[in-house]
Simulated assay, not measured.
Amino acid sequence: MKTVSDSKRAFHSAYPRPINSIYRRVIEELLVEMHLLSVNSDFKPDPIYYLGIVTSFERLMQGYQPESDREKIFNALCISTDGDPQNYKSQAGTLLSLAKDKSIDQLVDWFDNPNGDNVNHIVEPIKAIASNDHFKYSRLFAIGIYTLLEECDPEVAQDPEKCNATVDKIAENLQISSEKMKKDLDIYRGSLEKMEQLLKVIEDVLEASRKQREKREQEKLAKLDKNEPQAESATAE
C-alpha cells in the first residue's frame, strides 16, 4: 500500500521548489489528509469533496508568492495522491454553479433529491451518499458543503447558529452525522481568520519596510543636494 512518505516524495518530485514557510503546514496537512483518504477502502471521492479541496487550497494559500506557482502546487498535490487536478476543478466548478441561483432552503431540498440537467456525473455520486452505510466522511467534505452555503447565502454561512441549523438539515438528507461536520467547520473558519490576520501582519511589515526604504532614499538624495553647492564652491576657487 502507498505510504504518506510515498505521496510526499511524489509531491516534491512534481513540485521540487521549497514552499514558503507560512504555507508549508497548510500543504502538509492537505497532503496527509488527501493521502489517508485515497488509501481508505471505504472512501469514494465525490464532487463535494473535490469542491472542499479546491476551496480550502484557494482560501488558505491566499497571498502565496510567486502567485504563478499556486497552480503548480495544487497540481502536485492532486497528482501525488493519485488524483486529476483538472477533474477536481471541473467537478467543483460544476457543483458550485448548481448552487449559484438557489436559496438556502432550495439547497437543503436539493440535497434531499439531487438533480440537474446533463450533470449525472455530479448528481449520481451525491445521490449515492445517503444510501452508503460505509460513507467515509472527511473535513474536506464539510468544507465543500460550507462553500455551497457561502455561494447561496454568505450571511447564513457566516452566522454560526444559522449555519449549524442548515448543516443539520443537509446532513439529515444525506443520512450522515452533522456533529463532526459542525466542529470541523468551526476549526476551518478559525483557520481562515488566522490566515487573514497573518496576511495582514505580513502586509503591514512589507509596507513598513517600503516606507523605510523610501525614507533612506530621500535622506540620501537630500544629502547629495546639500553637498552639491559645496562641490561647486570648491571648483570655483
Rank of each mutant, 00 (worst) to 15 (best):
residue 4 V to F: 13
residue 6 D to F: 07
residue 7 S to Q: 08
residue 7 S to F: 03
residue 8 K to G: 00
residue 9 R to Y: 03
residue 9 R to P: 00
residue 12 H to M: 08
residue 13 S to Y: 10
residue 15 Y to V: 03
residue 17 R to A: 10
residue 18 P to E: 07
residue 19 I to E: 06
residue 22 I to E: 14
residue 24 R to Y: 06
residue 25 R to S: 14
residue 27 I to T: 08
residue 27 I to E: 07
residue 29 E to I: 12
residue 30 L to F: 11
residue 30 L to D: 13
residue 33 E to K: 13
residue 33 E to F: 06
residue 37 L to C: 08
residue 39 V to P: 06
residue 43 F to P: 04
residue 46 D to I: 01
residue 46 D to F: 04
residue 47 P to K: 08
residue 47 P to L: 09
residue 47 P to T: 10
residue 47 P to R: 11
residue 50 Y to V: 04
residue 50 Y to C: 09
residue 52 G to W: 03
residue 52 G to S: 10
residue 53 I to Q: 05
residue 57 F to W: 07
residue 59 R to Y: 02
residue 62 Q to F: 00
residue 62 Q to R: 14
residue 64 Y to P: 02
residue 66 P to S: 04
residue 67 E to I: 03
residue 69 D to V: 01
residue 71 E to P: 00
residue 71 E to Q: 14
residue 71 E to Y: 07
residue 77 L to S: 08
residue 84 D to L: 07
residue 84 D to Q: 08
residue 85 P to F: 13
residue 86 Q to S: 14
residue 87 N to C: 01
residue 89 K to S: 13
residue 92 A to H: 06
residue 93 G to K: 12
residue 94 T to H: 02
residue 94 T to P: 00
residue 95 L to V: 04
residue 95 L to I: 04
residue 95 L to T: 03
residue 97 S to M: 09
residue 97 S to H: 03
residue 98 L to M: 11
residue 99 A to I: 01
residue 101 D to G: 11
residue 102 K to N: 05
residue 102 K to Q: 15
residue 105 D to S: 15
residue 106 Q to M: 09
residue 107 L to E: 13
residue 112 D to M: 07
residue 115 N to T: 15
residue 117 D to H: 06
residue 118 N to V: 02
residue 118 N to D: 13
residue 119 V to Y: 05
residue 120 N to W: 01
residue 123 V to C: 10
residue 126 I to Y: 11
residue 126 I to T: 07
residue 127 K to F: 03
residue 127 K to R: 15
residue 128 A to M: 08
residue 129 I to M: 05
residue 129 I to S: 04
residue 132 N to E: 06
residue 134 H to R: 14
residue 136 K to W: 06
residue 137 Y to G: 02
residue 140 L to Q: 14
residue 143 I to D: 06
residue 146 Y to G: 01
residue 152 C to K: 04
residue 152 C to M: 01
residue 153 D to C: 09
residue 153 D to A: 07
residue 157 A to F: 04
residue 161 E to F: 08
residue 162 K to Q: 12
residue 163 C to F: 01
residue 166 T to N: 05
residue 167 V to E: 07
residue 169 K to V: 05
residue 169 K to W: 00
residue 172 E to M: 02
residue 173 N to D: 01
residue 180 K to I: 07
residue 180 K to Q: 15
residue 180 K to N: 10
residue 182 K to W: 06
residue 183 K to N: 12
residue 185 L to Y: 05
residue 187 I to P: 00
residue 187 I to D: 09
residue 189 R to N: 06
residue 189 R to W: 01
residue 192 L to I: 12
residue 195 M to R: 15
residue 196 E to A: 15
residue 196 E to W: 00
residue 197 Q to G: 03
residue 199 L to A: 05
residue 200 K to M: 12
residue 200 K to R: 11
residue 203 E to A: 14
residue 203 E to V: 00
residue 206 L to Y: 08
residue 209 S to V: 02
residue 216 R to G: 00
residue 217 E to N: 10
residue 217 E to H: 08
residue 217 E to R: 14
residue 220 K to H: 12
residue 223 K to P: 00
residue 224 L to I: 14
residue 225 D to W: 03
residue 232 E to H: 04
residue 232 E to Y: 10
residue 232 E to R: 12
residue 236 A to M: 11
residue 236 A to G: 00
residue 237 E to V: 10
